[in-house]
């Protein structure tokens, strides 16, 4: 299978890249790792006239501790995330989820920025970042803005990113003392994408859950916070019963848009979401101590 023809640009700076996006606004697509875009182009589900390859821009691949949080360059690969001691120490769920994206080859190539920008409804990273919180730094030729991750995923394969913007960085906040994290996923047997994946970030203080962010991927049309689940957890001691009750509401936010395909019916997806929410919250609570 062959993609359609396109014009190709390999800018060496963000300025150059964003200029190109402005110039070819509407017909240009950003090529990061390419592992979401190229398969779609081969199937001719995407036929961009222009590709702006940001792989040649230096300085977009880094993991930096700053201001208590961590900043991640958008071209950082899954493999770099999975093996980074900074990520492992600060956001174990991100390291763990990255280690389980697709396969070894894809992890060498796929990037955090690419995953967020593509916003596959079954991608792992969008849910994980959503559970951690933080923001996405989007640059145009003239400006730069931080998009709160809670407002980043808009719809199926659609984000708040404008078509002349490039993600340059993901800013993750410091997690409070007593915070545990976990990502639990049930993968589709052929594509290895998530049928459902649940990311949980839970803070426990004095035996009580003081904060909880839980996000679900795979079940609906985009990664989504499970706010009802979070509300049940907050302010309570995380007993088995509380976790079970919270997990049972994990699919509530996506129940009107549950995916359904030959691999999982809507009903089964909802069930798996609850099961994996239970696993993720329990693991996160255990890690929180």
């Amino acid at each position: 299978m062959v993609t359609s023809n396109f014009d190709y640009f390999a800018p060496t700076s963000v300025d150059e890249a964003t200029s190109l996006l402005s110039r070819y606004r509407g017909e240009a697509k950003v090529l990061a790792g390419g592992h979401s875009l190229i398969p779609m182009m081969k199937l001719r589900l995407a036929e961009p006239g222009v590709l702006v390859d940001i792989g040649g821009i230096d300085g977009l691949s880094y993991i930096k501790e700053e201001g208590g949080g961590v900043s991640i360059g958008s071209m950082t690969t899954y493999r770099e995330l999975a093996t980074s001691s900074v990520i492992q120490a600060n956001y174990p769920l991100l390291a763990d989820a990255s280690a389980r994206v697709a396969d070894l080859q894809v992890r060498n190539r796929g990037t955090i920025g690419g995953s967020l920008a593509h916003s596959d409804p079954a991608g792992d990273i969008p849910a994980v970042i959503l559970a951690i919180g933080g923001s996405v730094v989007a640059r145009t030729r003239r400006s730069s803005r931080d998009i709160n991750i809670d407002r980043f995923q808009v719809d199926l394969l659609t984000t708040a990113l404008r078509d002349n913007e490039i993600i340059t960085e993901i800013k993750l906040p410091a997690l409070a003392a007593g915070t545990g994290t976990a990502y639990s996923k049930f993968h589709q047997p052929a594509s290895h994408y998530a049928i459902t994946g649940v990311a949980a970030v839970v803070t426990v203080s004095g035996g009580t859950c003081t904060d909880a962010r839980v996000a679900v991927t795979g079940a609906g049309d985009k990664a989504t916070r499970a706010r009802r689940t979070e509300r049940i957890l907050k302010g309570k001691e995380l007993t088995q019963a509380v976790i079970r009750r919270a997990a049972s509401r994990a699919a509530a936010e996506v129940e009107d848009s549950l995916n359904e395909d030959i691999h999982a019916s809507a009903e089964y997806r909802a069930h798996l979401t609850q099961v994996h929410a239970g696993y993720a919250i329990e693991q996160a609570a255990a890690a929180a101590g």
Binding site: Q188, P189, A190, S191, D261, I262, H263
Partner: peptide, 11 residues
């Protein structure tokens, strides 16, 4: 064919 590629046919 719903299982029309290796994305949906689980080898």
């Amino acid at each position: 064919l719903l299982s029309g590629s290796l994305m949906d046919y689980a080898l």
